[in-house]
Design a protein around this nucleic acid. Structure first.
Length: 944
DNA sequence: GAGTTTGAAACT
DNA sequence: CAGTTTCAAACTC
């Protein structure tokens, strides 16, 4: 044990105290982040609303001082600040009046915009946007119109981009006057909000009934949309309740109804959704299909739309913010996120569906009300999506779901997906959105009911999607947290088995209870984070999932003598440092998920059975469980085994080690990898590269994997790897392009890249940052807490994104096509490889070799930043036969001149220096040596 | 709920 | 670095 220092100042840092206070309120999980709220916006927001408390509790507490961690934590916090608060603000203001709401919305918008700005400077260049808008076609009408409004541009800081969008959108959007009116109204409202709330309101009201309605809608939403519902079409009481809760289900129904006929193809989905909403997934699926249609070809457009819509959203409603969080968490890819978000939204509220639909079919004729609602919904969607897509989103994403546990992001997601996880996430999203509204018990009940209704139907597709999202991006404590926090009784019902009496448990009742709960919930608290039951380690060792995940233990934990609490922050930090000193990657996420999975997964099925691209950083060392039980970290994480695994008799459902190798091989042969260099490399190398490179690791799978339990995982993997990124997912494409396989070389890759470009603005942050960053960030965060820059991430949401971006850019070789600014972040995509002509063979080897790859890349291409930054490329021990610890890549030596020496010798140093980067996977074949004796013993036992 | 199994983490 | 021990989760009964 690291000597746990007994109490030290209970709350050393202000942030810690803050978090502690928050946590005290109720949330089991506490996320610590120092910087988070520093932004004026956040402060302002926080001051405005009490929400903070609400939100905070949900957030898992991270170690404030932790050097490495917890990006994951950060993100949640960010979310909390921005969105949750905003939402809460809305609520609070709701009571006050529309004006306040408007103001707040404006503020939020600004904050969002600003944050976005930072991330998105790229967006300014939006040549692609036009394309996107065009691609989006009708779907973006409303948004476009909205964007088109000059006023908006003025108001929004991101006006520039908006203007561009507007121009484009104008061309496209003109078709729908109504939408414009609404949008304009909204915009106007926003402007006015900035300084002239009243005027704006008047203005809006004066412009048209629609505008009025819309305003009403916004007001209602904030206050409660009941009025709208009443004015609009009759809505079932149940739906009304939802609406009151802010779900606006009734409104959605109305909208859907309205849309149904109008909608082209999507309309059906909407109508279906409505019909099925009460309990049928189909609607959701159809909705997904719609989303796919929208974003399928060009995810980017969707993002752009979302982005645009986001502004509306901002003005309109903050409540969606949480959604965004959840979604963000879940999804790295915008398209996916969008779809999922849509799904989620739809699940939460019909309105959401209508939004998407409306977006998709710009020309849809909706009643003013419906349109208004749609706008609102769109705005919500946009909000949700935006964060994801945009830099902020990335930040949000940061909160790796997996955070909760090393393994866990993925695992949790998976579990959730399988069971009620999806629902939980949905619930999270919903709750997040509705949480504020649900403050009253009644509201809560209503919300919960609504949630149930929604969730139930969704369980099928939605859950999977959700899972995927959560898993891929990061399950994010966030979402889960929010879920817990928000969990209404109904929700509990849904999760009852899991959550059960979680609240009660917070008190740390008998461990048994907790433990039971854990069992039910898979040891995950609402956050999706596992909760520990440590008895001897005081939760200061990696044995403790909480500690390992960089979060403080919470009520749900049944640990004994726990020092992993805010009160013992110092101890925790010290211990953490010690552990990190031994193994810099100790706190890095265990599961590496390739960024690309997202798209792939989406494409295949809505369900996506498995994702298999994600892999365990170190790989497992299973001897007796055959990787079929949770003893296996790979299995637990719902990821397939890879070369890095030292397991024996692997039968991992998510992907056998052997299969993995085979797949890799096939891929290599396929020539996609292009350039002989890849082909030339031995399979192992390739595998290693993927394995080693966490990001790179498995392009294949989506972390989440909802699962078919990985039965199809292997297949999916193959597909994913082989398949170039479909146009559907730009991310995928990009990532692939970046992949060491040599995006350049492969024609397909090039094509893909180009395609993606056409669809997306690479420059736009949406694409670059949003996609890449989001994913990358998520991964990074999950994987590696940035020891050095934790505060940065947390502190300024954009900061991290920026850093990443900068890194990525730096990494990016101008020559390389790799678009993604953030892509570079993702190792797996590392543009560098393709770009750098350097000794391909060596590099390749290096790359392929687990650690080597990174090192090589870093040195050659990225050198400065990365080198300086010190990427924690490898866990010190990563390579050990046991696999427990990553050993430095042997190949490094081979790699480049400079790299090998220093790297090797200084591997430890490097690791520390670059905590921000995800730990590379130990590529080493390593045979598990460590437990041999034990293995032998086990074998003997088995034989017996 | 207790006990066993399992494999990672920690230790030597 | 390899081997061993410890630990807590997962699992079984």
């Amino acid at each position: 044990m690291d000597s746990p220092k007994l109490s030290k100042s209970p709350i050393p840092s202000a942030s810690a105290s803050a978090s502690a206070s928050i946590s005290s309120s109720s949330s089991p999980v506490q996320v610590l982040h120092k910087v988070v709220i520093e932004s004026p916006f956040s402060n302002y927001i926080s001051s405005l609303s009490p929400i903070k408390h609400d939100r905070a509790p949900h957030v898992a507490q991270g170690f404030v001082g932790l050097s490495s961690p917890p990006l994951v934590f950060t993100s949640p916090r960010i979310n909390t600040l921005g969105r949750p608060q905003s939402s809460s603000v809305e609520i609070s203001q709701k009571c006050e009046g529309d004006k306040k709401i408007i103001n707040e919305s404006c503020i939020l918008e600004r904050s969002v915009t600003e944050s976005q700005e930072g991330l998105v400077t790229d967006i300014k260049n939006e040549d692609n946007k036009d394309d996107v808008a065009v691609q989006l076609g009708s779907s973006s009408e409303c948004v476009d119109e909205y964007l088109a409004d000059p006023v908006e541009t003025d108001c929004a800081k991101s006006a520039y981009s908006v203007k561009l969008n507007l121009k484009q959108s104008n061309n496209v959007l003109q078709s729908s006057v109504n939408g414009l009116l609404d949008l304009k109204n909204i915009k106007f409202g926003r402007k006015n909000n900035v300084g002239r709330e009243v005027d704006a309101a008047q203005f809006l009201s004066g412009q048209s009934e629609e505008s009025i309605k819309r305003k009403l809608t916004s007001d209602e939403k904030l206050l409660k949309i009941e009025n709208e519902q009443g004015s609009a079409q009759g809505i079932s009481d149940g739906f009304q309740k939802f609406e009151s809760d802010r779900f606006d289900l009734s409104s959605k129904e109305k909208e859907c109804k309205n849309f149904g006929p109008q909608k082209d193809g999507h309309g059906d989905g909407c109508s279906n959704f409505l019909q099925q909403l009460p309990g049928s997934l189909p609607g959701v699926q159809s909705y997904e299909g719609f989303a796919k249609n929208i974003g399928g070809d060009a995810d980017v457009p969707v993002h752009s739309m979302a982005h645009e819509a986001s502004e509306l959203q901002r003005s309109m409603s903050r409540r969606c913010l949480q959604f965004g969080e959840a979604q963000l968490e879940a999804t790295a890819t915008c398209s996916i996120s969008t779809n999922r978000a849509n799904n989620i939204i739809s699940s939460t509220s019909l309105a959401t569906n209508s939004e998407t639909e409306s977006l998709s079919s710009s020309h849809l004729d909706l009643s003013a009300k419906s349109r208004t609602r749609q706008l609102v919904n769109l705005s919500q969607l946009a909000m949700n999506m935006i964060p994801q897509c945009y830099g902020k989103s990335s930040l949000t994403v940061l909160k790796p779901s997996g955070i909760g546990l090393h393994l866990n992001s993925i695992v949790n997601a998976t579990s959730m997906g399988q069971g009620g996880t999806a629902s939980m996430k949905l619930a999270q999203a919903i709750k997040s959105t509705s949480t504020t509204s649900c403050q009253s018990a009644e509201n809560i009940d209503n919300c919960s009911d609504a949630f149930e209704k929604v969730s139930t139907p969704q369980e099928g597709a939605l859950e999977q999607k959700v899972c995927t999202i959560a898993g891929s991006a990061s399950e994010s404590l966030f979402a889960e947290e929010s879920v817990e926090f928000h969990m209404t009784p109904n929700k509990k019902r849904k999760f009852s088995s899991e959550d059960g009496d979680r609240n009660d448990m917070f008190d740390q009742q008998s461990p048994i209870k907790k433990r039971q709960v854990f069992k039910l919930s898979d040891n995950t608290d609402g956050d999706g984070c596992k909760r520990c039951n440590c008895k001897k380690t005081k939760c200061l060792k990696l044995y403790c999932d909480c500690f390992a995940a960089g979060i403080y233990c919470a009520e749900p934990c049944s640990c004994q003598g726990c020092y992993n609490r805010p009160e013992y922050e110092e101890t925790v930090l010290e211990t953490r440092k010690q552990i990190e000193s031994r193994n810099p990657l100790a706190f890095a996420p265990k599961i590496v998920q390739p960024v690309t999975e997202f798209p792939l997964s989406n494409r295949e099925d809505g369900n996506q059975k498995t994702p298999s691209s994600a892999r365990h950083k170190r790989g497992c060392n299973c001897k007796r469980s055959m990787c079929l039980k949770k003893y296996c970290e790979c299995y637990q994480a719902n990821v397939g085994c890879s070369i890095g695994c030292r397991c024996e008799g692997c039968k991992n459902v998510y992907g056998k080690k052997e299969d993995y190798c085979v797949t890799e091989e096939m891929v290599n042969r396929s020539g996609e990898i292009s350039e002989s260099r890849v082909a030339a490399k031995p399979k192992k190398e390739i595998f290693h590269s993927e394995l080693c490179d966490p990001y790179h690791l498995t392009p294949l799978t989506p972390s989440v994997q909802c699962s078919d339990h990985g039965k199809n995982a292997s297949i999916s993997r193959l597909l994913s790897r082989r398949c170039l990124p479909s146009p559907e997912s730009d991310l995928t494409v990009l990532s692939y392009a970046k992949s060491p396989r040599s995006p350049r070389t492969s024609d397909s890759n090039d094509i893909l890249l180009e395609t993606s470009k056409g669809n997306l603005d690479i420059d736009s942050f949406c694409e670059g940052i949003s996609y890449n960053n989001t994913v990358a960030l998520a991964d990074e965060f999950h994987r590696t807490p940035l020891p050095n820059h934790p505060s940065v991430i947390i502190g300024s949401p954009s900061s991290k994104a920026r850093e990443l971006t900068s890194l990525s850019r730096v990494q990016l070789d101008p020559r390389s096509r790799s678009l993604t600014p953030g892509g570079s972040l993702h190792w797996h995509s590392s543009p560098i490889m393709p770009v750098s002509p350097l000794n391909d063979n060596k590099k390749l080897q290096g790359l392929y070799s687990a650690d080597g790859g990174l090192y090589g890349i870093l040195e050659d291409d990225m050198p400065e930043i990365l080198k300086d930054t010190s990427m924690p490329i490898k866990p010190v021990k990563a390579g050990s036969p046991n696999g427990k610890r990553v050993s430095p890549p042997h190949n490094l030596h081979q790699l480049g001149s400079s790299s090998s020496g220093p790297l090797r010798s200084g591997r430890k140093f490097i690791l520390k220096a670059v905590p921000s980067f995800p730990p590379l996977t130990p590529c080493i074949d390593a045979k598990g040596s460590s437990n041999q004796s034990r293995n032998n013993f086990q074998e003997n036992r088995s034989n017996d």
